[in-house]
Design a protein around this nucleic acid. Sequence first.
DNA 1: CGCTCAATTGAATGAGCTCAAATCTCGTGG
DNA 2: CCACGAGATTTGAGCTCATTCAATTGAGCG
Lengths: 239, 239
Amino acid sequence: MPSSNLFIRKLEAFHPLSNEEKELLDRHSRPLREVPPKQDIIREGDKPACVHVIISGFACRYKLIKEGRRQIMAYMLPGDTCDFNVFILKRMDHGIATLSRCQVLELSPETVLEMTEHPAIARALWWANLVDESTMREWLVNIGQRPAEQRIGHLLCEILTRLEIVGLAKENTYTLPVTQTDLADTLGMTVVHANRMLTSLRIRDLIDIDARNLIIKDAERLKAFSGFNPNYLHLKGGS
Amino acid sequence: MPSSNLFIRKLEAFHPLSNEEKELLDRHSRPLREVPPKQDIIREGDKPACVHVIISGFACRYKLIKEGRRQIMAYMLPGDTCDFNVFILKRMDHGIATLSRCQVLELSPETVLEMTEHPAIARALWWANLVDESTMREWLVNIGQRPAEQRIGHLLCEILTRLEIVGLAKENTYTLPVTQTDLADTLGMTVVHANRMLTSLRIRDLIDIDARNLIIKDAERLKAFSGFNPNYLHLKGGS
DNA sequence: CGCTCAATTGAATGAGCTCAAATCTCGTGG
DNA sequence: CCACGAGATTTGAGCTCATTCAATTGAGCG
């Protein structure tokens, strides 16, 4: 029976955990900080003081450049650890912000240390980090090589797969609590164009959006269309 | 006096090393494998067996997509470790190839283990890995948000800075042993356009290229023009 | 010298951007 | 309960940056 604690459920996707380990994690899974949408969790230039785990909602890594443009470099979904690695650095070279309302768990360095004394937990966190890196490589491919419509399709497929891991997507349907501006800043295109490409995907009958609810009407076709291959997420079943 | 061993010199940029540690590293710095240009060091799908260190020449991480397009996701310059982290994964989700002729050092897992038993070496490798991640984030910003000419400028500034660390760039001049096709595949544009933007940078009197020799004629102006800020490389002097 | 690969240039086309305005949604206060 | 306002979505028109296709020139090598 999968844990109702998404942090645990996510880690278990990478490495099996004993009951003792799960209890340890669960004991440190409180309190949760409620963060409103579009709010910084850490700002660029800050000295990181703790590790953040997203328990509900979507957050992101981002950078701003002079011209007022923003690039989102990663999505953090429920169960995801924000900065297991990065918090070693003296100063953040990028910001982390919520996209939707989020529940965030804050782990002190001591707590993280206590957790990582269990090799299984350390290993799971390590893997999660490798997958984050791998995901970033895939984003580079996505932005660098694919036309706009497929870029969006690819991202939607990735989110579907990642939400399935923690049980937040059922029947190719999930809540996507981000604006089209966020999508545009993620994929390196303008909002106007993101909107048009989304419409285009709808016309192709690949997806359907109702408020914040996304229905992928034909997942296989969308994956093929977008060149999506889940290998880079290094899931258990994967080759 | 900086070491003549570029692997050591690079690591020392991240963490001071004792003589004993440097001797250990140096003892394992042979033999060097000579690899011709445009040749795979590891292919996507391969099971990684050892860690590679580039001693001379340029190598890259890349992925191919169906349509025959290629995205280069990282450059590995002399002193850089290719896959300190990635080699934990069961299968490579991307390839590593030479761009120019390279001298490559191959470290067995046991050798890496022996090295990382020294905390200073482990720490330096760890930092190098964090910087690689950070660099990838910056590339995402570069490709996602900057127009083509500035993208090229930014990359040239980054390479300048990274080569200066290991003493391979003098007076804003260095050897850039890659083709324009490689640049294009790195920055998500066509060769034709890369060529034109390079010409444009030349006309602005920012750079000069003679065969494989790049002269940055006004580094400050090129950095400003390209929005280059070396923070993300987390150098010693940096804030 | 002839070959192959890299660099360069031209012309036409197209994907994606800018600017602008209209419509829609939804939370808030009266 | 409704009106208002801010932010989000949608649509149109014109323009630009970048691509495609094609051909030429240049450089290095056996």
